[in-house]
Design a binder for these strands. Structure first.
Length: 574
RNA sequence: CGGAGCGUAGCGCAGCCUGGUAGCGCGCUUGGUUUGGGACCAAGAUGUCGGAGGUUCGAAUCCUCUCGCUCCGACCA
């Protein structure tokens, strides 16, 4: 491709509304342009990366035995009504009517459509297992789209659905996809972790998320430094082996703590460490119950773990007036002593004695509080947020490390949720009717490319890894008006094209400075600089964008050298 | 949804408080000089100041409404 005939509008300045680096760079490098909030056009340069990502996914999915199909974006409402999600999905589901006033929605995911297809075409266990996938534009009317392609309303997703006769088969399908996903993200050259994830209300047996490690990630994850365990912090388990409650030694004492509301305030006021305090959180559940949760002062509540433990959809911190009504004091002074609501304590609290708690009265706390002696706990449970340094629940010696991650893939064992709701069954070898056991598997295509940029950039621009880079080689023609320079560039360009290498020839009539700045910004992995200076000696410069390493190569060896480097970069992870 | 902020040329912004011919930088066009890290000189083009209504002799500026966009949003017990 000749730059002079291409559309690659680079920006010198960062667009004001781009917050994260991948969004800024994709805008500046002319990869995307915004049409509306969370809705983007893929410009030619950006589309090349997107297509490469899709192709890697396609190859690995096919290799894993999945079959590509393509379902409609416009979904008839009746399928969604049948699964019950027409009502449940809420405002994220973009609904509309056709000219006959029939209800439709834009597909945010396709369990309904695929299940409908399968129940109408598959009748026998002999046709199983099946795994169908598509790479398609989805629409989810997010409350708050943000960060460019990272969280769009319209976005390209690969979604796959597996169908098996039984659990055992479904588990096999799941692990095939798990491995395919590992292959996909490895091939992209990404640093990632596959982590155990919360399976939420669906209650499936397991679920893994694939997280690209990046500081800007919206998710927290922990991984064991000794074994394979890794989990989203939403899910990460904590165990306390052989934890016994120490004997109480202190006397319960009421102390005045005027105006000391936060843990930090109270700890400082009493000249104690926050871990000598036990905080009492008043929470409300989706079932409209109110309860108290005890946590060591320096810990944080994991609302998802608590909700799962309680078997409710969600929990949230109680409103101020609820706190006042249940504890008799404004927020900041809640404590377990004398509370009339159920008290759940984090498992860790069982190992504490002689601690400080709130006094359920304005400006009052207690010191020397102890379990059982001073108050009762209805249940101990693992409800706190895991942090770095916590002991691994799966092995004896490991400790957690913590990371930020961008969720680029999610594999999920669905079970029979949709096949039951939509009556998708087959006959087994006994002639019995069985609901299909399903799994679903998603990858955010655009998000993965954005995550790759988050992970691979510097102050000058992006450095997409070779497998995702829009072009493999850039030829910077420094002096296009110099006959020798131009001829050498053209010759090299042709050679590389003939070798099947993806090359962008910067033949624009621009000053060298502009070409260098643009080259760094768009970050094509290899750059060949053709300048009069070195060409006199018969040499060209070959520079790696990511490492900055630069070598002089004789003209007649260059194409071959480039091909080697491209091949190495593409196959290093296979 | 709640809160905050912003809509002025393709991009980044000033002007608004205190109403009086719409500006700056980059980019773009033409000519010239330059040419290894975002050049210089000269001459240009480009705006319904997000939209509607109101106040006023006069509105980018004041008022009301509206639309769009961006950010933040519960560990505070």
């Amino acid at each position: 491709m000749r730059y002079s005939q291409y559309l690659l509008p680079t920006l010198k300045e960062t667009p004001a509304d781009a917050e994260v680096i991948s969004h800024q760079l994709m805008m500046r490098a002319g990869m995307i342009r915004k049409a509306a909030a969370g809705i983007y056009s893929y410009m030619p340069f950006g589309l090349r990366s997107i297509r490469k990502m899709e192709q890697i996914i396609r190859e690995e999915m096919n290799k894993a035995g999945a079959i590509e199909c393509l379902m409609p974006m416009a979904n008839p409402a009746e399928l969604w009504q049948e699964s019950g999600r027409w009502e449940k999905y809420g405002k994220e589901l973009l609904r509309f009517k056709d000219r006959k006033e029939t209800d439709f929605c834009m597909g945010p995911t396709h369990e309904e459509v695929i299940t409908d297809i399968i129940r109408n075409t598959v009748n026998s266990y002999r046709q199983l297992p099946l795994n169908l996938y598509q790479i398609q534009t989805k629409f989810r009317d997010e409350i708050r789209p943000r960060f460019g392609l990272m969280r769009g309303r319209e976005f390209i997703m690969k979604d796959a659905y597996s169908f098996d006769l039984d659990d055992e088969g479904a588990d096999k399908s799941y692990s095939k996809m798990y491995q395919a996903y590992r292959n996909i993200f490895n091939r992209c050259g990404l640093k990632f972790r596959s982590v155990e994830a919360d399976s939420g209300a669906i209650g499936g047996s397991f679920s893994h998320e694939f997280m690209v490690l990046a500081e800007s990630g919206e998710d927290g994850i922990v991984s064991c430094d000794a074994c394979e365990y890794a989990a989203n912090v939403e899910k990460a388990e904590l165990v306390y082996r052989d934890l016994e409650t120490p004997a109480a030694t202190a006397v319960l004492q009421r102390v005045d703590t005027p105006g000391q509301k936060t843990i930090e305030d109270v700890a400082a006021f009493l000249q104690m460490d926050p871990n000598q305090l036990v905080k009492t959180l008043i929470v409300q559940t989706s079932e409209d119950k109110v309860l108290a949760v005890l946590l060591r002062g320096d810990r944080e509540l994991n609302e998802i773990k608590l909700a799962n433990k309680l078997g409710v959809d969600w929990v949230l911190m109680a409103e101020d007036d609820v706190v006042k009504r249940t504890t008799g004091a404004p927020t900041g002074f809640a404590g377990p002593i004398g509370l009339k609501i159920p008290v759940i304590a984090d498992a860790e609290v069982r190992g504490l004695a002689d601690f400080v708690v709130g006094g359920n009265a304005v400006d009052v706390h207690y010191t020397g509080a102890n379990l059982n002696r001073d108050f009762a706990v209805s249940q101990f449970a693992d409800v706190r947020q895991a942090v770095a340094g916590d002991p691994c629940p799966r092995c004896d010696c490991g400790k957690f490390e913590s990371w930020r991650g961008i969720e680029v893939g999610h594999v999920f064992k669905l079970g029979t949720k949709y096949s039951d709701a939509m009556n998708a069954t087959v006959l087994d070898d006994q002639g019995k009717t069985k609901p299909l056991v399903m799994g679903c598997y998603g990858i955010g295509v655009g998000r993965t490319v954005a995550a790759a940029i988050e992970q691979n950039h510097d102050e000058y621009g992006m450095m997409l890894p070779m497998p995702l880079a829009p072009f493999q080689v850039l030829i910077s023609v420094l002096n296009p008006k110099d006959d020798q320079v131009r001829e050498a560039s053209e010759q090299l360009y042709q050679q590389l094209l003939d070798m099947g290498i993806e090359v962008l020839l910067d033949d624009r009539d621009e000053r060298p400075g502009i070409k260098f700045k643009d080259a760094d910004l768009i970050g094509i992995p290899l750059r060949v600089t053709v300048g009069a200076r070195n060409l006199k000696e018969g040499n060209l410069e070959l520079k790696e964008r990511a490492s900055g390493e630069q070598v002089l190569v004789p003209f007649d060896q260059l194409a071959k050298r480039v091909q080697q480097m491209v091949d190495e970069a593409l196959f290093v992870s296979l």
